[in-house]
Amino acid sequence: MNPKFESIQFLALLRREVLEHRNLFIWAPAVLGLLIFVIDFLIVQGLDERTKIAFLEGLARFFGGGSPANMSPVFVFSTLPFLFILFMCATLYLTNSLYQDRRELSILFWQSMPVSNLKTVLSKVVAITVIAPVFYCAVIFALYVIAILWLIVSGLSYDIEVAGLGYMFLSAVLSVPVVYLFALTSALWLFPYMGWLLLFSAFAGRTPLLWAIGSLALILFLEGFLFDTQFLSNWIETRSDIDNFLIVEYGGLFARLFSYEMFIGLVVGGLLTTGAVFMRRFID
């Protein structure tokens, strides 16, 4: 097969993932974005006129006082609800991605196509690591555009100087690539977690999430019981500690991306994902 066809084939696999999991990839962030906007809207509309003017002037002053690039981390933190939902959706997605088609027997169709298991599993990893954050960031961007436009229109109606709100918009826009890179780096940081879920998704006869959690608990217990050590639990604790990977600026993100710990995680995740590819070979 030529490289062009290989690319078309892989894109088709990614499209399949988005179509199959559009609720997790598109609707979940869209609903969250709408919810956040409606809540903010109701809160601001509920303010009396004096407080509202003071709020808008305060925002304009705050963002007008610094460079948009320096203010963008404020917006990165404000996207944490989206990143939390992305994490939950990713867990659900990875748990079901190699299990659902086995359960409904459509695996017989997918396996009747000339697509290798390696490519299938890779498409799932790429879909949740690279593609899903694109949709989440698109929703975040749309939310910023709508919300700040609404603030600007409100400000103009009260004759407020809105230049600061323009800076606020620039800060928001500049934060979106950081959010994307953060989501991507976090996904790679959590690659062992992804590989573990994929392995049980490919293997479990039913309830793969329970298998994944139960097996981990058993391994942790056995390590303590047999060797009287806590190496694995310490490693998981360090890796899942939010302070260890909540980085919101380019320098820190790139440093994390090319760190030794990241490399170790990728190797462990890669081994577990290879296990998932192997388990998917035979569906019975």
């Binding site: 179509l19 027997l105 697509v115």
Partner: peptide
């Protein structure tokens, strides 16, 4: 298997087409 499936097609005894896809998709 994936190389073989370039030369082989398979229809199974149950409705195995993915139910969530549209026909044109």
């Amino acid at each position: 298997r994936h190389k073989l499936m370039e030369d082989v097609c398979f229809i199974a005894d149950v409705g195995i087409l993915p139910k969530w896809l549209k026909v044109y998709q």
